[in-house]
């Protein structure tokens, strides 16, 4: 895409920024159940971080650096989301019934773990996958 040779500062800083954005997106993802955030927002923000790097480094470099198959990521996300529902069916509950409990974990203290988080992980993966698929399908089209 846009690939200019003399932008040293830009290239250095964009890595830093991307790391911060990804970290923040992971925070948003985890905090989703109790504060603003969640799979959709986290996923979109991660996608933005990756896209920004694509803008700066170009598709060739990025494809080598992050060799994800985004359509696969999408389908894995869908499977994960659908899978959590099937687990509850296996235990005789309605499809997509979610469970939660509080656990004591070293370092973090009391932590709430929910199956909804796994469902949200599916959402996250699908959103990243589909956002990247849309844009890369156009960018990588060589016709």
């Amino acid at each position: 895409m846009i690939n200019q040779p003399n932008d040293m500062m830009f290239r250095v800083f964009i890595r830093l920024i991307a790391i911060i954005v990804v970290t923040f997106s992971i925070y948003l993802f985890f905090s989703g159940h109790n504060a603003p955030g969640g799979g959709f927002i986290g996923g979109l923000m991660t996608a933005i971080a990756i896209l920004v790097m694509y803008l700066v480094f170009g598709t060739k470099t990025m494809n080598a650096a992050l060799p994800f198959n985004y359509p696969y990521m999408m389908s894995i996300g869908l499977l994960v989301a659908a899978g959590t529902g099937i687990i509850s069916v296996a235990f005789g509950y309605p499809y997509l019934k979610q469970f939660f409990d509080y656990f004591q974990i070293p370092i973090f203290g009391e932590v709430e773990l929910t199956t909804a988080l796994i469902f949200d992980l599916g959402v996250y993966l699908l959103v990243v996958g589909s956002a990247m698929t849309f844009i890369l399908s156009i960018v990588e089209d060589d016709s």
Binding site: V127, S130, A131, F134, I135, I138
Partner: peptide
């Protein structure tokens, strides 16, 4: 919003 994102992206392509 999310569905709309999907639709917009699809229409763009």
């Amino acid at each position: 919003i999310v569905i709309n994102f999907g639709v917009t992206a699809f229409v763009s392509v």
